[in-house]
Design a protein around this nucleic acid. Structure first.
Lengths: 117, 117
DNA sequence: CAGAGTCACTTGTATTTTGCAAGTGACTCT
DNA sequence: AGAGTCACTTGCAAAATACAAGTGACTCTG
């Protein structure tokens, strides 16, 4: 699984650049969970309602860490275990999540803001 | 190429639902071009700076049409040729694009708002 | 202290999506 | 007649994703 998106940006457009980092079906859901439910561990994220595969989760956590959207820090030595926390960069994605939620509520019947996790 | 995303939604979360429709690397760039440059034809979209493959473009246009984000209407009979236009649903994605652009400008050096197309 | 369970992954494999290049059909223009 | 435009489609390789199962380092229970 690729792990890094170390390719050149597609253009100098800020929208395209942002989509290069979080423009997939899962990344922003991780950010959502961390934003609304606080720091979480691997198992918490894996158990989120959308149930993403664990290998994809591992990959996305690495990517998001690489581009500074989240950090992990150990909550236990021996065995080494980590929890994941948004950085300010990550928290700055809140308006994106908010606008996505607003659109969804307006146009997708049966969906609702928040919850779901 | 798949053409339709007719699977069940992953959850009742509005964010997840919206990402099911436009959560990929290309869809929102099409919306961006249509929003900032007006109605466009296939060749115009294909020639956009990010140069997406034409088969992917065809697929995305069909998907976006299916979920009511854009419509196509003919600008020429014989040969039948279409141009693509955002619906209100599609125009409502403007805040999403705006927040993505804002994040990109703040966190991705060298990117800029608009332009790029 | 053997065995079961938890946690955070990793591995293997199948399926799906994406990307690139080239081709096609309907037409217009020279 | 021949070249060019337009909006795709096709073929195929490469990458991403999904699903299931396995692993290593521990802890907890009987």
């Amino acid at each position: 699984m690729s792990s890094a998106r170390n390719v050149a940006p597609r253009s100098d457009c800020a929208i395209a650049g942002t989509l290069d980092l979080v423009g997939d079906r899962w990344s922003l859901l991780i950010v959502r969970d961390l934003l609304f439910r606080g720091n979480l561990r691997f198992a918490d994220l894996a158990a989120s309602t959308e149930a993403m595969p664990t290998n994809t989760l591992t990959d996305r956590l690495r990517r998001l860490e690489e581009c500074g959207i989240l950090v992990r820090h150990p909550y236990s030595e021996r065995p080494r275990r980590y929890e994941y926390q948004l950085t300010e960069r990550g928290r700055d994605l809140a308006p994106v999540l908010d606008s996505l939620a607003t659109w969804g509520i307006a146009h997708l019947p049966g969906t609702r803001r928040l919850g779901a996790g």
